[in-house]
Design a binder for these strands. Structure first.
Length: 428
RNA sequence: GGCCCCGUCGUCUAGCGGUUUAGGACACCAGGUUUUCAUCCUGGAGAUCAUGGGUUCAAAUCCCAUCGGGGUCACCA
């Protein structure tokens, strides 16, 4: 148990829409803060105006909201805190830790010895000081670089745990030296392993790697994304438990984060997504499905959605699953016969029998339809498969649909008979 | 290339010197349920624990070397 108050931060630079690695960082920050009843802070590291990409700050807010990583403080902007950086840069020159070099202020790294620290994830890390060059702290335009700004902000904002990607390991000696020179206690460092693409290259830097908003647009649930991200570099039971945020907070353990890089496996994300979709209740699922469903397809949704729930991996798949309820394209004769595996005459006779049966059915419910047509099929020369597959084609135009009698009941008597008539005409 | 980190089934991982013929999950394959698909259930295949040396009565587990992968060497973060 940590003695000091836990305060974590996610500190993105607004240079594009955050990718999945940033989201995992934020999740770990969030879980750690919440586990110890601490605070999670958002800070925008906007010191490189040349690389600024409009919209990326808004995207960050959106992603935090989507994934439920709600900051307790912030956003803070580094460009609004320049006075602090200048003040401490001066102090560093005065005490000999930094020097001015053609307008920029650089740190004076020792040329001998090692900088060693205990990283909560990586364990003991030791880096020869001569490997670290005199990094620029304050650029000649008066704007700080990352190295100066993080140290000052993390200290001033009382950050207890710095969770960041492993790419920062080699510049940690710079930060440590700054803490020492300023007389401050450094935070606990946690350098997370990287998330790699299927080609084993760092995910964020790869061309074509999707950002978090794209996953949202494809119909991945925030719960599924968080769940998936947790198990990338962290292990709990068999890494397949469906966990809510609350449960994640409970089981998260900052001492058990893996050291090795992890490959992003979309199939695992799909697994969590389909599991989470099954877990949602119908009204919740309907609400989330709404943005994906064709505006004109609203009728009977409360009956249709329960039928497709178990067939959904991503929310965006919904339209392909339910389109036949709203539009009908007559099957080809070839398709119809292939599925009845009977002559045109026998198939025609079977579909006519169905039509006659359904026409007089008063209680147009799945159970009644089932009972009626099962009896009719028994009297026919067709096997259940032959009979109902051809009927499925005749009524929905598709080979794959939810349970047939449920579909027929939802379509209603009038629509079903009309479609049946169209298919019968085909065979004549 | 220098430096730093990592290396258990395709993937995420359990494993912390003997209980391991290395366990689970995803994916894959087969079977069952089912009028289709999916769900669900059962089973299967899949890792000589990167390789080679040590240490030890005993090593995936400790040590060394090699190889492989990643990171980093900007007035970018």
């Amino acid at each position: 148990m940590t003695k000091t108050k836990v305060r974590t931060r996610i500190a993105p630079s607004p240079t594009g829409i955050p990718h999945i690695g940033t989201a995992r960082q934020a999740l770990f920050d969030y879980l750690l803060a919440k586990k110890y009843k601490g605070k999670f802070i958002l800070r925008i590291e906007d010191t490189d105006q040349k690389r600024f990409v409009p919209g990326s700050i808004e995207a960050m807010y959106k992603i935090n909201e989507f994934l439920g990583h709600t900051p307790d403080e912030g956003p803070y902007f580094q460009t609004k805190r320049l006075k602090f950086y200048k003040k401490y840069a001066k102090q560093l020159i005065k005490n000999g830790t930094a020097y001015e070099d053609e307008g920029a202020i650089r740190i004076k790294m020792p040329k001998t010895g090692y900088t060693t620290w205990k990283d909560l994830i990586q364990g003991k890390i030791s880096i020869p000081n001569e490997e670290v060059d005199d990094k620029v702290l304050l650029k000649s335009d008066g704007i700080p670089t990352y190295h100066l700004a993080v140290v000052i902000d993390d200290h001033l904002m009382e950050i207890s745990h710095v969770i960041r990607g492993a790419e920062w390991i080699v510049s940690t000696p710079v930060h440590l030296l700054l803490y020492q020179a300023l007389g401050w206690t450094p935070p606990i460092f946690m350098h997370t392993p990287l998330i790699l693409g299927p080609d084993k290259a760092k995910l964020g830097k790869r061309h074509g790697a999707k950002n978090v908003l794209q996953y949202k647009d494809e119909g991945y649930l925030p719960e599924a994304i968080n769940n998936f991200l947790l198990y990338l570099g962290f292990s709990y039971k068999d890494n397949s438990d469906i966990l809510s945020m609350k449960e994640m907070i409970k089981i998260f353990n900052e001492n058990k984060i893996s050291k090795s890089n992890a490959i992003f496996d979309i199939q695992k994300l799909d697994y969590f997504n389909s599991k989470w979709i099954k877990k949602l209740n119908i009204s919740d699922l309907t609400k989330r499905l709404t943005p994906f469903i064709d505006k004109n397809w609203q009728k009977n949704l409360s009956k249709i959605i329960p039928l497709v729930k178990d067939r959904l991996t991503k929310l965006s798949e919904i339209n392909n699953l339910i389109d036949f309820f709203f539009k009908f394209s007559t099957p080809t004769q070839e398709n119809l016969l292939a599925n009845s595996q009977a002559s045109p005459a026998i198939t025609l006779s079977w579909l006519n029998t169905v039509k006659d049966n359904l026409k007089d059915l008063k209680d147009f419910q799945p159970e009644s339809i089932h009972e009626l047509l099962k009896k009719a099929q028994g009297l026919s020369d067709l096997s259940p498969r032959q009979a109902f597959m051809s009927l499925r084609l005749a009524v929905t135009g598709k080979i794959v649909t939810p349970p047939l009698f449920d579909c027929i009941a939802i379509l209603g008597k009038k629509e079903t008979l009309s479609r049946l008539q169209k298919s019968v005409t085909l065979l004549k």
